[in-house]
Amino acid sequence: MNNETILQVQGLMTEFRTERGIVNAVNDVSFSLERGKTLGIVGESGSGKSVTNLSILKLIQYPPGRITAGQVIFKGENMFEWSEEEIRTVRGKHISMIFQDPLTSLNPVIKVWYQIAEALRLHHGMSKKEAKAKSIELLKLIGIPDAEQRADNYPHQFSGGMRQRVMIAMALSCDPEILIADEPTTALDVTIQAQILELIKNLSREKSTSVIMITHDLGVVADMCDSVCVMYAGRIVERAAIDDLFYAPQHPYTRGLLDSIPRIDRAGGSRLHTISGAPPNLIDIPPGCPFQPRCEKAMNICSKQSPPEFIINGDASRTAACWLHAKEYNNG
């Protein structure tokens, strides 16, 4: 069972056609997810991390969005070769998602229990009654007090944290193999964030669900993930096991991210680091490394040619897309 790859994304490219040109939101992204493990995808807003994950379930709206290349291999089969109908049967049943803002992600005019029950009725063929009972059970499981009464409420009658709990109940209702959590705590109060993360962690561990945790918050990554991919401008710039990332970051961008976290153990000393500049415009990406204009260690080659992912220390799951790791440049 260990180290069994459940989902593999290969060479994914997603673009959006806008009035000002084509936005290459996801540019040749590959990663794999192991059963029961949690993979973090970290990046600034606009780095393509959400689009990557919406692409997995083909939830990109066309137009303007379009997946132009790549494959998503789920349990040995390339989902991109399936029909829309076949992909639909995977959504919510085998792979489900939690979104950032629980207020806008729940339907305002449909009762909470019904929204949870929908997937159960569809994927498990439950009757309305069974599905309602199961929904109430799920609401109890995720810690909603008075679940029987609250089940008949509408989303606006819940607090933000409670709404996100409902989203979680909804996503986990059919015991999916994979849970994709897209910034699940960003819209919540700090005190609630920890509770929600704890809930996701416990439930996924119990059912050995694999999780893809999308976030811009390295604290969440440290808390939840087994391994991490760092995304920048639609690409993965570094991938590592969790400890390696924090203790030995290999890409200048990752290093910058880590240095910009306030840390108690350094409180008195150094000033907080910032990465100067802004992420690049994804419409006409200049040749070379997308991070080069903001990089403190930029070299000549960086503005000419985009770096491939270099394998670090011979471990295929440990890479950095930076010329510093090419043999001919890595002496400095």
Binding site: L54, L57, L59, R88, T89, V90, R91, G92, K93, S96, M97, F99, S105, L106, N107, E118, A119, L122, H123, M167, M170
Partner: peptide, 8 residues
Amino acid sequence: RTAKAKGL
């Protein structure tokens, strides 16, 4: 999007 992600 949520409704679609549910597989409806």
